[in-house]
């Protein structure tokens, strides 16, 4: 690859502007996830985060806690602000600022009692931080309405994708290493899913017994999980495959979420997958629905400025 080709590749990857729909959809889903997370946490503050609860302040993380929340009142205050920030994120009112606020509060609350965390809690806050590095309020947002009027809610500005790439990288890393770590015998011999679905303490909705005891079903589910994970980890940037992989990923997470107690893992991962949507395709669909002529959003003009840079 010569220097010009490398420059063109870098430009396409990080600079060439596109509609912000995928980021906006991810933002809304992450906002809903944060809202649900804060409300669900509220009910267990005194038990799981309180000073007289099951996990005293001596069990707090030794890592940087941002805001030490060592009393019930402080935790509830943080959760209230977190819930409020999630509403701002969902509606797209200064989402960059509120995503940063939400990230700091989530880390502070989670590090008060790290023993109750699962991977869903971690990916929810990781994506919250990474979305703060993107112009996620450039579509479907109150910021658009305030700037361009009520009709602008379902319009999108053209944005540079450098922050989007970090969110996408995070998603692919999750899938690659989730696949990579499943090196045990139960995964290779095709029985892992049967074991997982028999773990009494992880069940959400019971799976029919014939699936758990079927060698064929279990093998198909076990190996298809591995195939989907590695495909999502390595092939999501292949444009022709992307729509199918996104659908497979959403099915995977809905299935896991329906059968296992994984909390907010599903909605966070689906939010991350939305960043792989074809921005122009979504833009075209929205324009069709709104019967708007191309270029009607008034923000595409800014693309010329960056395209030449």
């Amino acid at each position: 690859m010569n220097a010009d080709a490398l420059h063109a590749f870098g430009h396409r990857l990080f600079v060439a502007q596109r509609p912000a729909w995928p980021l906006a959809i991810a933002r809304v889903l992450i906002g809903i996830g944060i809202l649900g997370w804060s409300i669900s946490m509220w009910f267990d503050v005194s038990t799981l985060l309180g000073t007289d609860g099951l996990l005293g302040t001596d069990t707090a993380s030794s890592l940087w806690r941002w805001i030490p929340l060592d009393s019930d009142v402080l935790v509830r205050l943080a959760l209230a602000v977190l819930a409020a920030s999630s509403v701002a994120i969902i509606t797209g009112w200064r989402p960059t600022i509120w995503l940063l606020v939400a990230f700091v509060l989530m880390v502070s609350i989670q590090r008060r009692s790290p023993m109750i965390l699962n991977s869903g809690d971690i990916i929810l806050r990781d994506l919250t931080l990474l979305l703060a590095l993107t112009p996620s309020g450039a579509a479907m947002s109150l910021d658009r309405v305030r700037a361009h009027g009520r009709d602008a809610f379902f319009t999108s500005a053209m944005v540079a994708p450098w922050g989007l790439r970090l969110v996408q990288l995070q998603m692919m890393v999750v899938y690659v290493f989730a696949f990579w770590s499943k090196s045990g015998e139960l995964w290779t011999n095709g029985t892992a899913v049967s074991t997982v679905l028999r773990l009494d303490d992880l069940q959400r909705f019971a799976v029919p017994g014939f699936i758990i005891t079927s060698v064929l079903f279990t093998a198909v589910l076990t190996w298809s999980t591995l195939i989907v994970e590695v495909a999502l980890g390595l092939l999501l940037w292949a444009k022709p495959l992307r729509p199918y992989l996104i659908v497979l990923g959403v099915i995977l997470h809905l299935s896991i979420g329906a059968t296992l107690l994984v909390g907010f893992f599903g909605i966070a991962m689906i939010a991350g997958l939305m960043t792989f949507l074809d921005a122009d395709w979504v833009d075209d669909r929205v324009r069709e629905r709104r019967r708007q002529p191309a270029g009607g959003t008034g923000k595409r003009s800014s693309s010329a400025r960056l395209s030449s840079s």
Binding site: A178, S181, G184
Partner: peptide, 9 residues
């Protein structure tokens, strides 16, 4: 930390 159900459940 993405080692879920790994290396075995």
């Amino acid at each position: 930390d993405w080692g879920v159900f790994s290396p075995n459940p």
